[in-house]
Design a protein around this nucleic acid. Structure first.
Length: 914
RNA sequence: GCCGACGUGGCGGAAUUGGUAGACGCGACAGACUUAGGAUCUGUUGCCCGUAAGGGUGUGGAGGUUCGAGUCCUCUCGUCGGCACCA
């Protein structure tokens, strides 16, 4: 073993050589099948996170695998460069968003290169470049022409902290907070731009052309929220039409009142004079109420009678119209028919306001008594005139035809999905290419004037207000139609616009005559494999599907779907750790301890403390001994365990405390607090920095570990010891391949040779199948198994055999996608030609991989009693005889009679006895 | 509340889809080499009883189907994720 494995040297070397030789430049080549492998592009936040590595390096390995299998693989990378953090940095630190962004990109490019991934950098895109966002604007204009982009005044969710509107899916949780900063959103009435994604709602529910995880499809289906029912037209006594949507038209005869959303435009007109003041007060109160309060389901419903009446079209009954906050303007028509007997919410409302409840669906075996709660199950229609007696499922259909015949209503489908709100009141985004002219109104910027560039000389206000709104140069423009002084639209586009089509721009990032070069498109599209996090299930992945359908309808692409196959990787969580064990002395102030001195008795490094070697937990008169459970600027919490594992958390005020670690003075911030398995975050201090790992172990180790240690789909907690295992493995492989000690004398044992060949071919088979199936952890495990066998045979004459060479070559080839640098170094190092990455993927020989002998499992009554080595393909008779001869079997058969013998070929014999 | 996913050693995770549970790795324990080792190498390692041979038990829990269940069915508990007055 003449040379040591020095990943830092060989990785840098090969990355440069691959780059120089253009090894991963992908060009259209009709002689090869194409494979467009796409992994989600990062936001340039500053540093590459271990999560980026976790998402990208297994993807890279799979892309490399396809490449060696003979595909022409495109594996591009870029930066999702517009967005709020850049602007916030500008405000906080006075750096221009562009400067901040490009500095981060520069750094992240370096970090990305350190992965050794096969990214084709000649196709890199940066979405904040005018040559990129010009096409955002172009698409916007095309959509505007087709009526797919429109402007309307709407009550929109607005984040007062980010000072911008949010799309519906950017408002999260029952508290309805801003996804980015956690501030509760407020409602604002603003003129906003929307994309008509609802036009495609039905088509977006069709996943038949997609090989996507069921999870994602379910999330999208829920998000689109399709429900079938009917629209029924009620008339008010004033003669206005009041349309309602219902999924249960069969309960129409049970409508005893109607409810409108407080925001419903007709409310104003309906109010009777006597009720005017009260209703207006109610509407105003509701509108002022925050959504958090209003939309909490537990809250008791409130409402008020408008004084107006409507007529139920099915039975001409006069029913009161109420206004209530439990009806939402944003769903259906903003008005409902209330059927208290068969709807929980209506029931509660009717009880509260003493409104009539009429049963029209008789529950099975109903005794005719008044209901104590709403019955929404199946039953038989009653009190419904000529339709009495119709059972529930068919009743719905029958009522719909009944309504349609009489022109009272029609079958209808409703979606929860809203149009996509794309306006953002922010500077760092794509300007919406629209001009507001006092004479002509809304005027699109002519195509030949694109891009509308973001001005660079802008000043940022601490409030976060859109800098474009007071940038005079940007603002003032002549109307392209009439030449009058006009004003530019200052809203910019949601950044999801950028990521909705970036996979098209990768094809030709600098192409001038269109969003991409159609020739490239004809070859590479659509994306064959997409990988990324599940968190994008309803936003990015729905928008990008919508976008492709729009592009298809514009005649730009042939496919209905952007990405045929999707795989979601999980996330890497923080490593759990015990906190430091400390001895705190000070004085008590109530329940809290005011510390004078905090001594760390041991500093935990990554793993749990050994309790045995520590002093006991203690709460005393002048201090405590225990584990640092939590730490913040003001102090710590110390966890003390009592005799029965009873837990006490002591709050320690450490403002005035002297901190000592190992006898040395230290800062409070140096104390390690207890960490659970939880998301990595700077504040918790459990972030793993890939750069540090690369410096210590090399990229190949990090790649191998990330692929080996987790089920890729699930992710899991980081383990700083675990990565050592992968490093050991690579070192062992290295010393196996570069073993230049003399080969042991003698003849190689043919059985060993056979065993090695068999294992080699089995490994090729396993790795090939598992790589395809995203089972990366078992792929690496298989390679480790082969390594382990080789290490056993390394000290025997087998090392001089052809089987050994075969094993070494194949091991290197199979490792190439996973650990590209060491594989290249070993491949060329044993005299093969550059590059290992241009080699064809090895093929296994099924007959060599075949086992000759196997372990026949012998069971008695289903319990394992013996194992016998037999040759593969042993017949039933023979197996049965062997089983019955087994001493262990005979022992267990004593006093029993054999009833039956089950034989499972190449598996086991089960003797059933009583 | 509704929808979905998941529960396997001290830990991360395997299990050809109904046929040897725990591959591979981490950790732990023992030993070798070493001035030393948190390097490297060898061995052991689900739990319980037993010196051993051997036996019992074991995939969140309870039941069921089957010659045989981590895998299929029913119920149940727990964890996580999504949606949530959606008419």
């Amino acid at each position: 073993m003449s040379i040591a494995y020095k990943p830092q040297e060989i990785e840098k070397k090969w990355q440069e050589i691959w780059e120089e030789r253009g090894l991963y430049r992908s060009v259209v080549d009709d002689s090869k099948p194409k494979f467009y492998y796409l992994t989600m592009l990062p936001y340039p936040s500053g540093d590459l996170h271990i999560g980026h590595w976790y998402a990208m390096t297994p993807s890279d390995a799979q892309a490399r695998f396809y490449r060696m299998q003979g595909y022409n693989v495109l594996f591009p990378m870029g930066f999702d460069a517009f967005g709020l953090p850049a602007e916030n940095a500008a405000i906080r630190r006075g750096v221009h968003p562009a400067t901040w962004t490009y500095q981060n990109i520069e750094n992240m490019r370096r970090q990305l290169r350190s992965m050794g991934a096969m990214f084709d950098w000649s196709r890199e895109i940066v979405t904040c470049e005018p040559e990129y966002y010009k096409w955002n604007q172009w698409f916007f204009l095309k959509m505007y022409e087709k009526g797919l982009a429109y402007r309307k005044k709407a009550a929109v969710d607005f984040c007062p902290s980010c000072n911008t509107t949010l799309a519906r899916e950017q408002v999260v949780g029952p508290e309805r907070v801003c996804e980015r900063c956690g501030t509760p959103v407020i409602k604002k009435d603003l003129e906003q731009w929307f994309f008509r994604i609802t036009d495609y709602a039905e088509e977006l529910l069709d996943f038949s052309k997609l090989e996507w995880p069921e999870r994602v499809k379910v999330l999208q289906r829920n998000w689109i929220g399709r429900s079938e029912g009917a629209e029924v037209v009620f008339k008010t006594e004033q003669g206005d039409e009041l349309v309602v949507f219902t999924t249960r038209p069969d309960t129409l005869w049970g409508t005893t009142f109607m409810v409108m959303a407080p925001e419903h435009p007709l409310v104003e007109k309906l109010i009777s004079p006597g009720q005017r003041e009260a209703v207006e007060q109610y509407v105003a109160d509701t509108r002022r109420m925050e959504d958090i309060v209003r939309e909490s389901a537990e809250r008791e419903k409130t409402g008020i009678f408008t004084g107006a009446y409507a007529v139920n079209p099915v039975n001409q009954e006069r029913i009161p119209i109420w206004v209530a906050d439990y009806v939402l303007m944003t769903y259906g028509t903003g008005a409902i028919m209330a059927v208290p007997a068969h709807d929980e919410r209506d029931f509660a409302f009717a009880v509260k306001y003493d409104l009539p409840i009429r049963v029209v669906i008789a529950p099975p075996e109903w005794d005719g008594q008044p209901l104590t709660e709403a019955y929404s199950g199946e039953g038989t229609m009653i009190n419904s005139g000529e339709l009495d007696g119709t059972p529930t499922p068919s009743g719905i259909k029958e009522v719909i035809s009944w309504l349609e015949e009489r022109g009272l209503g029609k079958k209808a489908v409703n979606y929860r999905l809203h149009d996509w709100l794309i306006s953002r009141q922010r500077y760092w985004g794509t300007p919406i290419p629209i001009i507001h002219c006092p004479n002509c109104g809304v005027v699109p910027v002519p195509e030949d004037q694109l891009p509308v560039e973001l001005p660079t000389d802008v000043t940022f206000r601490a409030s976060g207000e859109n800098a474009l709104t007071y940038n005079e140069d940007f603002l003032h423009v002549k109307c392209p139609l009439c030449g009058a002084d006009a004003r530019r639209e200052t809203d910019t586009m949601d950044t999801f616009m950028d990521s909705s089509w970036y996979h098209y721009r990768y094809l030709s990032p600098h192409y001038q005559d269109g969003p991409w070069d159609p020739e490239e498109g004809a070859y590479w599209l659509p994306v064959d494999q997409y990988t990324g996090g599940i968190e994008h299930a309803t936003m990015h992945l729905l928008y990008t599907r919508f976008f492709t359908k729009v592009l298809r309808d514009l005649g730009l692409v042939d496919s209905d779907e952007p990405m045929l196959r999707l795989f979601n990787q999980g996330i890497i969580l923080g490593e759990p750790r015990d906190g430091d064990f400390v001895q705190v002395t000070g004085s008590w102030s109530g329940d809290a301890l005011v510390a004078a001195k905090i001594q760390v008795l041991t500093q935990a490094e990554g793993s749990y403390l050994d309790r045995k070697s520590l002093p006991p937990y203690k709460i005393g008169e002048n201090g405590v001994q225990g584990e640092v459970w939590h730490r913040d600027e003001g102090g710590i919490k110390v966890r003390v365990l009592g005799g029965d594992d009873e837990e006490h958390i002591v709050v320690v005020n450490a403002q005035e405390a002297a901190v000592e670690i190992g006898g040395q003075p230290a800062r409070l911030a140096d104390l390690h607090m207890h960490l659970e398995v939880e998301k990595m975050s700077k504040s918790r201090g459990n972030v793993v920095a890939p750069d540090v790992l690369v410096n210590k172990y090399g990229a190949d180790t990090v790649r191998a570990y990330l692929m080996f240690a987790f089920d890729w789909q699930s992710g899991g907690p980081w383990n700083s010891r675990g990565i050592e295992g992968s490093y050991r493995w690579l070192n062992r492989v290295w010393s196996l391949v570069f073993d230049d000690s003399p080969v042991p004398d003698g003849e190689a044992d043919p059985a060993d040779v056979r065993q090695l060949r068999r294992k080699t071919h089995q490994t090729i088979r396993k790795v090939t199948l598992d790589m395809k199936a995203f089972a990366f952890n078992t792929t690496v495990a298989a390679l480790m198994e082969l390594t382990n066998l080789m290490r056993k045979l390394q000290v025997t004459p087998v090392r001089g055999s052809d089987a050994w060479k075969e094993a070494v070559d194949n091991l290197i080839l199979l490792m190439a996608p996973i650990t590209p640098h060491i594989a290249e170094e070993m491949w060329t190092g044993i005299g093969h030609e550059f590059s290992v990455h241009n080699q064809p993927w090895p093929v296994w020989d099924e007959t060599i991989a075949q086992e000759e002998t196997m372990t026949l499992v012998i069971q008695v009554n289903g319990k394992l009693r013996d194992k016998i080595a037999v040759s593969v393909g042993i017949g039933e008779e023979e197996a049965r005889a062997l089983a019955l001869q087994s001493k262990a079997v005979q022992r267990h058969l004593q006093g029993k009679t054999v009833r039956k013998v089950i034989f499972a070929a190449n598996k086991l014999v089960n003797v059933v006895a009583k």
